[in-house]
């Protein structure tokens, strides 16, 4: 799902590269706010998790299987800025170690799967989380819808870039319809997997879920009964 070299013309690639570099620079500052000086090890290990999680094949239906992309899930788990960094690092690793996604298209891929997917996923999550009931179910629904939308919107952004900087004269509407149609299905899978993983983390370690911080309440301190004064003298 990574844009290879040559799909978009040079000006578009350069423009998305500038956008990606700006976004990553902002994310580097933002991540320091989310994780302070623990940024490097925690973001690094989270990126390693995203990398590994993308290798899990989830059976979807009728013999097909899909894997997680993880933008929305990571944003809800560790916060949007750290998630942008994690996705960027995963894309960088895939581009230089596996030739997956072109080097000149790195900016495009980072913009689409880092900035757009994480931004849409997390933005939707926050909007819905504000209206939905403040419960575990509310968090899961919000994250699921965010994950679902993040995929077709990123695909739509790609079609937009292709319309501007593509090398073929195609009717944008047709390509957009085909891409969005396919990615609605992929988004459905993404939503299901995101909810399953997030639900598991919420059950075991709700304190680790950045996006569910508002569910946390200070622990009720049980009052100890005052020691009974016994006069033993």
């Amino acid at each position: 799902m990574h844009v290879p070299d040559g799909f978009l013309d040079a000006p578009t690639s350069v423009a998305t590269g500038v956008v990606a570099a700006g976004g990553v620079a902002v994310a580097l500052r933002g991540a320091r706010r989310e994780l302070d000086e623990r940024t490097a090890p925690l973001a690094g290990l989270t990126a390693a998790f995203v990398f590994a999680a993308q290798m899990i094949n989830f059976p979807v239906a009728a013999g097909t299987s899909g894997h997680l992309i993880g933008g929305a899930l990571t944003a809800v788990l560790v916060g949007p800025w750290t998630a942008v960094l994690c996705m960027t690092v995963v894309l960088l690793v895939q581009a230089v170690l596996f030739a997956d996604g072109g080097l000149t298209a790195l900016g495009t891929n980072t913009t689409l799967m880092g900035l757009v997917a994480v931004g849409v996923g997390y933005g939707t999550f926050r909007l819905l989380a504000a209206v939905l009931p403040r419960t575990r179910g509310g968090v899961l629904v919000a994250a699921g819808v965010g994950a679902f939308l993040s995929v077709p919107v990123a695909a739509l952004a790609f079609v937009g870039l292709f319309a501007v900087g593509g090398v073929a004269d195609v009717p944008v509407g047709t390509v957009a319809a085909a891409m969005v149609g396919v990615h609605l299905l992929i988004g459905l899978g993404e939503a299901v997997i995101t909810v399953a993983v997030l639900g598991a983390v919420l059950t075991v370690r709700p304190d680790l879920v950045h996006g569910a911080a508002y569910l946390r309440r200070p622990a009720d301190l049980a009052r100890r009964p005052a020691p009974v004064e016994t006069d033993s003298r």
């Binding site: 290990l45 989270t46 998790f49 590994a52 997680l68 993983v197 598991a200 983390v201 370690r205 680790l208």
Partner: peptide, 12 residues
């Protein structure tokens, strides 16, 4: 789902 979830917790 829980397997991936515990993978995240262990990584973090």
């Amino acid at each position: 789902g829980p397997a991936a979830g515990s993978l995240f917790i262990r990584s973090y």
